[in-house]
Nucleic acid binder design. Sequence first.
DNA 1: CAAAATACGTAACATACGATACAGCGCTCT
DNA 2: AGAGCGCTGTATCGTATGTTACGTATTTTG
Lengths: 275, 275
Amino acid sequence: MISSIAELISDRIGTMPAGERRAAQTLIANYPLTGLKTVAEFSAAAGVSSPTILRFVARLGFQNYPEFQSALQDELAAQLQSPASRTLDPASPAGGAVSPMLEATLDNLRETFRHLSDRQLADIAKTLAERRGKTFLIGGRFTDPLARYMAAHLTIIQPDVYHLAGQESIWRDRLIDMGKRDVLVIFDIRRYQESLIRFAEKARQRGVQIVLFTDQWLSPIARFARHVIAGRTAVPSAWDSSAALFVVAETLIGAVTRQLETAGAKRIRDLESLR
Amino acid sequence: MISSIAELISDRIGTMPAGERRAAQTLIANYPLTGLKTVAEFSAAAGVSSPTILRFVARLGFQNYPEFQSALQDELAAQLQSPASRTLDPASPAGGAVSPMLEATLDNLRETFRHLSDRQLADIAKTLAERRGKTFLIGGRFTDPLARYMAAHLTIIQPDVYHLAGQESIWRDRLIDMGKRDVLVIFDIRRYQESLIRFAEKARQRGVQIVLFTDQWLSPIARFARHVIAGRTAVPSAWDSSAALFVVAETLIGAVTRQLETAGAKRIRDLESLR
DNA sequence: CAAAATACGTAACATACGATACAGCGCTCT
DNA sequence: AGAGCGCTGTATCGTATGTTACGTATTTTG
């Protein structure tokens, strides 16, 4: 069973003529980067001519050079998306077989935050904290609880926080209250929900600032969003995981709370006295 | 000090116009692969036009698109050659400055699962999967979204799953439907809610099997529970974190799904055909 | 050793790619 | 409410890229 192009090459390298073999060796030497460059660069690196490179990829079974490059990119994408397979991780095997779910989730968290800078988080927190209007939160079928979770916290530290629940027609009517000073937080992972997309589009038309929590493939709503948070969702389960988005949400809640410390503290005291 | 292009982007993403920001977001979402494709593919993925992509890379300081791609490739080459550096440093130099929240959450997850055996998880999954009656889920002020999240999944793979929402008087009346063949899943972290404790006690008297998600100090409900899951909640924030409980919930959802695979698969098909 | 076959590189070609000019649009600010 | 500015997309252009044909070199075989 041959899965990667590298294997394919080392499998056939024996049957290749000298020039193509040099091409193969230089590609393997720093795989797969040389293959992502242009034919001219590849040929220069290997010390052969361009046609030799093309014959080489043809021998591997590809119709043309772009097809070969696409295959390499796909392979690379698969590698980058599952860091677990790459890192041998001498730290954990002792703790071992605990739960593949846990391992995958830990990876997802690390990956998600790796693509998320402090700066970005601070910007979003600022958007949520300093909004001069109202905050609305909504989610999809499985992610709506995340919207609720966030709303439950935010509503304590600042006024005018609303979770949009129930039927589509209900939120649609709330659009009339929304304007450019307002913020809309949307959670949407695949399979992306049509109703949410429509809603986001209309909100955008009214000037609402949209903060989107989505997966790494980006919901179409990203088009309308001011801020996009892309969380990793792949786990060894029949379902996608929302854990990464959950943790980002908690992080944001914490950041917003810190920013509103002075104003928020008073509000919390007031709330306490109401009980 | 800005070393990677990803940092450069997240540094300037705030100052970018909407279109270029979309480009930046799609690139970050699955970095750096989109940047290695052609301008046309990049623009299609981001949902913007080609010139916007070019303006985007120009804003990052590159003279032209090929120069930008070369920079990405160099970066990738450095990463691939030293796989170790990838997990340790790239974004988080000291292993920590990114987000203390993340570090704390990762610790919480590991600690939580360390005290949770496979056996225990399997038992709880079995309880949920093989119950002959109904499943009820309920949570506290901040944890109710977790109950909803779990309910949203379970209800797809098995019948008679109910999330208890709204006012206390409403759930109390549902007690009448509960018996010893039923399972009640409760989420309760401090400050523990009186109403939930009362409810749990009454349910216990009726013979209901209780599965409790709580924090490491254990809600009083633990007295009545058949199964107790204690999650770590401490994070550097004004709020406690429910992330560990969230991940345990996801793990259980996955386990239950696997156990009901045959029966569940049919149910899922039936549901699909209803849409 | 000769002749054929295979491999390789040079050079010309066509395509598709990145770059640019321009016009329309929405947004902000006065 | 109007004028100005900045952003974005359409259409066009030049060029670098992949591709192919062909001639030369090299190896293989009788």
